[in-house]
Amino acid sequence: MKILSIVSATLVALAAAPGNANDLTAQDLATQETTSGEMAGQKTGPSNAAILEDLRQNSLSSNEILAITAADEVEFVSLESFSGAGRQELEETLGSTEDGMGEVQTAFAWNETLEAVLDERDVMIRDLVAATRSDTGTLTVYIDMPSI
């Protein structure tokens, strides 16, 4: 009972303290959420719009994937957040890339460097959807095509 009253008193004091959550602006809350996620070791991924743009601009063909000999910076991004109209736009974007999922998966399977990266991260080849490379050389591997 004594612990419960200490916890209650602490909560009341925190709620009354200046700078409590009621005093935060939307910008403060956004900053707080981003910071707390980063502090907890959670990296928030790119927006769906940013993913689609990356796929349109930087998608790698199977030949380009096969030619990769070093994979120092590799990021894995899940596509599971796409649904409804967003999923349809994702499918259209992927359909306009040079090579489809099957070719990308085959290229990863044949590239020993990339296959080692997949093994290291416990990513199955069947989960691969597409890959892009940024101007800085970072390889982004898109995984987890959303189901219908």
Rank of each mutant, 00 (worst) to 15 (best):
G102I: 01
A85E: 15
E112L: 11
I68C: 11
W110R: 13
E33G: 03
V123H: 11
V77G: 03
I125T: 14
T136H: 06
A85H: 11
T138Q: 13
T44E: 14
I6W: 08
E53M: 07
E64H: 01
A107I: 00
D23G: 04
A50N: 10
A70P: 03
V117I: 09
G37F: 15
N63M: 14
V129S: 07
Q32C: 06
A40D: 08
A50M: 07
E64T: 06
E53H: 02
L4H: 06
Q105L: 09
L94F: 05
T31S: 09
E75C: 03
A26F: 10
A116P: 02
P18L: 13
T136F: 12
T138M: 12
L139C: 04
Q105A: 12
T97A: 15
Q42P: 00
A107N: 02
A130L: 06
I65F: 01
E103S: 15
L14M: 01
E120C: 09
D127P: 02
M124G: 01
S96R: 13
D135L: 06
R121W: 04
V123I: 12
N22T: 10
G137H: 01
L90W: 09
E112P: 09
A40E: 10
V74L: 02
E103C: 05
D54S: 02
L24W: 15
T140P: 02
V129M: 02
T34N: 11
V123S: 03
N20A: 03
S59G: 15
A71T: 12
K43E: 14
Q57N: 09
A107W: 03
L66N: 13
L11E: 00
M145N: 01
D127A: 10
T106A: 15
I51T: 10
E112D: 12
S5V: 04
G86L: 01
W110C: 01
E53Y: 03
T10L: 15
Q105P: 13
A70T: 14
I51C: 03
L66Y: 09
D23S: 07
M124L: 09
L4M: 09
E53N: 04
A49E: 15
A17M: 02
L128G: 05
L29Y: 11
R126L: 11
V117F: 01
T25C: 00
G84V: 08
I68N: 06
E115G: 03
A49G: 14
D99E: 03
S59L: 03
A131I: 02
D23N: 09
D135M: 07
E115Q: 02
D127E: 12
E75R: 07
T31W: 10
